[in-house]
């Protein structure tokens, strides 16, 4: 567990540094995914399994997909987009992320191999008396409701921000409408 923590910490710091010094968004997003996966394995080595699952599902699964979709929405009209996609397959683009992710993979294999499975069969101590679900649905239920209200507020705010864009611009074809192409954007 200790070695998993330190290896993942080094990977997280290296990948985070590559995120802020990245030149293209796609490479920065690749490194961001690696940094988030490395911090997920840090949480695993610290014993916070629920947060590991949340980090992988919410951060890696939702947030990075959101960034990729926004970026491709911005790029859709430009003819450079297809050329850029070809450039993304060059080895200098994926070699660095591949090395970092391979080290993470080796630590994952090590943690799977070093688990003592005979303890898991009759283990009652993993379901301890103060489990997370009992606390979360008991005294901390207001935190859950606060999170739900936060998501609701986010949906409403986001809808109002991008409402007029989706009304005036044909978002799928990427071509601006005739109504908006002649007059410059207001303000």
């Amino acid at each position: 567990m200790v070695s998993i923590f330190y290896i993942s910490a080094i990977i997280a710091i290296l990948a985070s540094f590559k995120v802020i010094t990245g030149t293209t968004l796609y490479s920065a997003l690749l490194y961001l995914v690696i940094a988030l996966l490395a911090s997920a394995s840090i949480f695993y080595s610290l014993g916070a399994y629920f947060s590991t699952v949340l980090e992988v599902i919410l951060f890696v699964g939702i947030a990075t997909i959101l960034f990729i979709s926004i970026r491709s929405y911005l790029d859709l009209g430009s003819p450079k987009f297809k050329q850029q996609e070809k450039g993304n397959l060059a080895p200098k683009f994926w070699l660095g992320p591949l090395i970092l992710v391979f080290v993470l993979f080796v630590t994952l294999l090590y943690s799977i191999a070093s688990t003592d499975y005979s303890l898991l069969i009759n283990d009652k101590s993993s379901i301890n008396s103060m489990s997370l679900e009992a606390v979360l649905l008991g005294p901390y239920i207001l935190i859950l409701e606060l999170a739900a209200l936060l998501i609701l507020g986010t949906i409403i705010v986001t809808y109002h921000f991008i409402n007029d864009i989706t009304l005036t611009k044909d978002s799928l074809s990427g071509k601006p409408n005739k109504a908006t192409v002649n007059k410059p954007a207001k303000k």
């Binding site: 936060l150 986010t154 705010v157 986001t158 921000f161 991008i162």
Partner: peptide, 24 residues
């Protein structure tokens, strides 16, 4: 862990609002 749940959801919320502002 409970505070980290709230922090993760806050980060997602600010990413959503920030990306909507970026589109504007």
């Amino acid at each position: 862990q409970i505070m980290s749940l709230l922090a993760i959801i806050t980060t997602l919320a600010q990413a959503c609002v920030g990306l909507a502002l970026l589109l504007q």
